[in-house]
Design a protein around this nucleic acid. Structure first.
Lengths: 269, 269
DNA sequence: TCACAAACGATCAATATCGATCATATTGCA
DNA sequence: TGCAATATGATCGATATTGATCGTTTGTGA
């Protein structure tokens, strides 16, 4: 990873959250603490961000947290490391120029950081994802039309004859609330609606779920395992669960966390 | 491969990605590192790109142009006071609960400041308008689907059977590049396309133009005067121009610049 | 206040990149 | 074809960047 590239990612991360820790940037850029510190110092003298103990913050505090910041406050900080590692693997599956669909969600949102240097047509129903990609990348961004639901951060239209139906991609990336033998599960009916609109617009369905999702159950089934091409998860996946995916013919990618994190205790929480 | 050929490839790569490494260019052109370095050096002195350690980056944006910041930087600062006064009058026409359509543009963008305390369904094809309303108001925001064009800051879909067709409003607000006896004129074909999609989705068409627009001419006619219900402009409008509107049955609102602006007024100082 | 852990800055070795030089290949021209 | 001019590729020493280590500073909680 090169200096400019790192600077881009760091600045993009600082836009996201009011304050970003050195550790987070280490994970994002896959470089060392020392390098990140040097980068922060350089960007600080360039007045592109403000250096604070533990990390960096955006230069202009009157920035509203707004929409993009909201997903973080709820459940983002907890499994952030896993989600990022999973998102990194997801982006690694992509080839420049190849169209993709990204369904809104906190895990899929993490993909934006790794998409900054890419160049491809990206369709999404998530306003924050579109916003971030527009501001921090040169990808072609396509958005589904409809009402913006603030709580779920997605755009949804009651009409079927939408631009959505005209976009076709090789891969679609999505998160979920749970993943079991019956298939992909979601809790929010609104999300189900949004996802079902997109799910047939791509050849391969790639599901991004941290390993805790294998033990979650939910009332609403979105689709069966057979529809899923690939699952990306973290090292917490158990053999039994991996076996289940294998039996169903689902490819499995296990994302390893880059650095030695002591958040390993997050399982008991 | 010839020198010119490589230069073309390198420049195109730099346009697409903000930063390109020497290694990537080596793979792209199938030539050696030394050659690429020479090429980069040559293009650097020609100011066609900027040389950085490890590769090259695009010369133009050392900063992210971003989206929300752009409309202001171009021609916003100059006529900001007028535009804001016009936008205030436009919002004054609205009633809470009554759906409206706001077409993208620098003048219509100013409406967002006066919509913060309102509560109505707002449909727009402008990403910055949607972004601002989401972050700073509680209005219900609806967005048209499609590709986001960065230059014009609008969202446009090549398909007609869009969610757009299902939203109907009492009023639609739009700007224009010019307004003359022949009707409403626009310069950018892309904007024309976006506007024509929306124009029939509202009863009343409200046009926001500062008075200089009466003396502007443009090649593309969007619609005739008869289609326009109301024109909002500033005190610079001349009698002859006001007469023209009256004859065509267009209501005219002249926005006076308020010295009692609660916003930061650029006039006082 | 003290003890402890996290964050920091400095240093140094490992690595990557650069610039210069020279050998080789290609092109243009007589 | 032969020759000169130029472009390209390879090598190597010089330089810059990176990552790890270690001692110091800062913040936190008992």
């Amino acid at each position: 990873m090169h200096e400019k590239e790192r600077h881009r990612i760091i600045l993009s991360a600082v836009q996201e959250k009011p304050v970003v820790t050195v550790q987070e940037m280490v994970e994002l850029t896959d470089s060392s603490e020392a390098t990140i510190r040097r980068d922060i110092a350089a960007l600080h003298v360039q007045k592109r961000l403000r250096r604070v103990r533990g990390g960096a913050e955006a230069i202009s505090p009157p920035q509203f947290i707004g929409l993009a910041g909201r997903p973080f406050s709820v459940n983002e900080t907890l499994n952030a490391a896993q989600k990022r590692a999973i998102a990194r693997e997801a982006v690694n599956l992509c080839t420049d120029g190849e169209p993709i669909i990204i369904n809104g969600g906190t895990t899929t949102f993490q993909m934006v950081h790794f998409l900054t240097g890419r160049r491809m047509p990206i369709f999404t129903n998530s306003f924050p994802i579109a916003e971030h990609l527009l501001k921090h990348s040169k990808n072609t961004v396509m958005l589904s039309g409809g009402t913006i639901y603030r709580e779920q951060n997605i755009i949804l239209s009651p009409f079927d004859n939408d631009v959505t139906r005209n976009f076709y991609a090789r891969r679609m990336f999505m998160g979920a609330q749970g993943l079991g033998p019956l298939g992909l599960m979601e809790g929010d009916p609104l999300l189900i609606q949004a996802e079902q609109k997109l799910i047939d617009q791509a050849d391969e369905l790639v599901v991004l779920v941290d390993s805790s999702k294998f033990r979650m159950r939910s009332s609403l089934i979105l689709c069966g395992l057979s529809r899923i091409a690939t699952v990306i998860t973290d090292e917490g996946i158990e053999d039994r669960e991996a076996k289940m995916l294998e039996t169903a013919g689902v490819a499995l990618v296990v994302a390893r966390r880059q650095s030695s994190d002591k958040e390993e205790s997050s399982l008991q929480a």
